[in-house]
Amino acid sequence: MAPRQSTPPAVLACGEIRTCLLPARQALDIRSAAQLLGLRADERVLLSERPGLYARSPDTLTGVDCPLPSANGARIRAVGTVTAHAALTEGRVLQTSAHCRLPAAGPDQRRPWGEYLVRPGVVEPLGRLPRDAVAEGVLGGGRHGDLDVGLVADGLLTRLLRHPLLDQRPPFRSRPTRLRWVALPAEPGEGPSLERFTLAEDELRTVRLRIPEDTDGAGLAALCDDLALHDWLLTTVVRMLDGIRLGASGAEDTGAVVRALRPAVDHLLHLWMPGARVTRELAPLWDPLEERPGFTRQWQALVQRIRDQLTLHAIPAPHREVEPAP
């Protein structure tokens, strides 16, 4: 067999991220985070303390050999590896992220496995890749048996959640979210752009990006991790405020409001830092989300509401009741 070009250029990248609250009473310090995320004996966990505590596991690979999901029903077989890593933000929010890149075409037959392993995170189609149909297929979710990078993220999350460091007593109730993304090449000469961010049913978000050809795969995954983290924060705090009866009076209700909102202050409000770990090239992708609907705008409004409620409930009840609604 003839030698191949070492890294075929990718024309499609896709991934899926699980974001959840770490099920532990106390947030993990940086050393425990390194222990939790030490997926490999011979590779360090990357630790960062600015602008916040952040730990990222080494990459792990999962081999796949299956049809690609596609919107037009074409069953294109593909072989390769899906890269996955886990990250912990401020010892509190756990994410697992799986992704792969696909070249425009691959060999007609499966190659020896060792050849795929020297191209980590690349899944090669047998023959030509129907790029746009596969991109739509990924976002829409494939049929059973199609490539599912979400399963890889799930598998890693399941493995981490069993870790003995976790006491399974989260400080408040929350739901995990899934963010599924695809990145297609930008027009020549164009910068990266975010085409669509969709809140779908069932805690699923889908993101469609355009990126220049030379965009670094790890940087792209980091951007999507960042989007998923902040979307989870918004979702979680919105739900927290949703569940309480505001404007109610009485000491019992005061206690309930403080109890419901306090975890946000203790665990979440300091985590909002959109773009902090995104490369300079991809940082502008946050702009459209900030413009409309305005992720940070919504976050600030939520934070203000929480602070106002807590201030209000800090006022002794008789005074608070002076000016109730008509």
Partner: peptide, 19 residues
Amino acid sequence: EAVAGRIVESPVPGSHGGR
């Protein structure tokens, strides 16, 4: 042990991401 941690099993046809 470190090398054992780097084993990525060759997927049999039909492997779509699960173990």
